[in-house]
Write a protein that binds this DNA or RNA. Structure first.
Length: 196
DNA sequence: GGAATGATGTACT
DNA sequence: GTACATCATTCCG
């Protein structure tokens, strides 16, 4: 009997799920960024699904542009975009047959590398490190250089823990003005590390 | 506690 | 010119 459950890197079968299903399934998984000797890890506690048809809040709704091109790639691809001209946000692409869809990672519970995250963020409280889409990208040292890459190969990837189970809540997405009636935001029940 | 505000790249009217 | 999948700071109660 091991006290530490086995971790395994998530593969292509995991990312093949329908977008909203994957958004829910990502809750509780570990986001890992290896930066040389550094290993920065956070548990995903908040996600939002951005669809194509019938979702005017999605970047893909107005068609493909230079900025959102990665959203039209393949399941498991990385989409990083610049928000409000200042902050970068990280997405897991779920595109299928030219249909641009993705899952926005909105908040993490810091697990490993808290000190390094604090240095990058210039904050001390663990709650302030990754409690927002722009914050977690800065804390983990992610940049637009990762845009168009893949979670299936490279230094930025996802892990699951064997036997792990999480209670997930669903509700309306936040920070948007269109399609606010859709319940496409998923959160880890009771987590103190959510964005709001 | 909450509301208002400034910073500012990309895409669209 | 305006809107936007944001954040930190500044004001007010």
């Amino acid at each position: 009997m091991s006290e530490v459950s086995a971790r395994s890197r998530l593969g292509s079968d995991f990312f093949a799920a329908e977008t909203a299903v994957l958004a829910r399934g990502l809750i509780g998984t570990l986001l890992v960024h290896e930066l040389g000797e550094q290993r920065l890890v956070g548990r995903i506690v908040e996600t939002e699904a951005y669809l194509s048809e019938g979702d005017p809040a999605s970047h893909s709704a107005a068609g493909k542009t230079a900025r959102n091109a990665s959203m039209f790639g393949s399941p498991g691809d990385i989409y990083v975009y610049l928000s409000y001209g200042l902050h970068h946000c990280l997405n897991v692409v779920t595109a299928r047959e030219g249909v641009g869809e993705a899952v926005l990672i909105r908040a993490l519970e810091p697990i490993e590398g808290l000190e390094e995250m604090g240095a990058r963020r210039a904050v001390d409280s663990p709650r302030a490190l990754c409690s927002g889409p722009g914050k977690l990208v800065q804390a983990l040292g992610i940049s637009r250089e990762q845009d168009g890459g893949s979670f299936l190969a490279g230094s930025l990837y996802l892990e699951s823990e064997a036997g792990a189970h999480f209670k997930v809540n669903a509700g309306p997405r936040i920070g948007i003005s269109k399609a606010t009636e859709l319940e496409l935001r998923f959160t880890l029940a009771g987590s103190p590390f959510l964005s709001r």
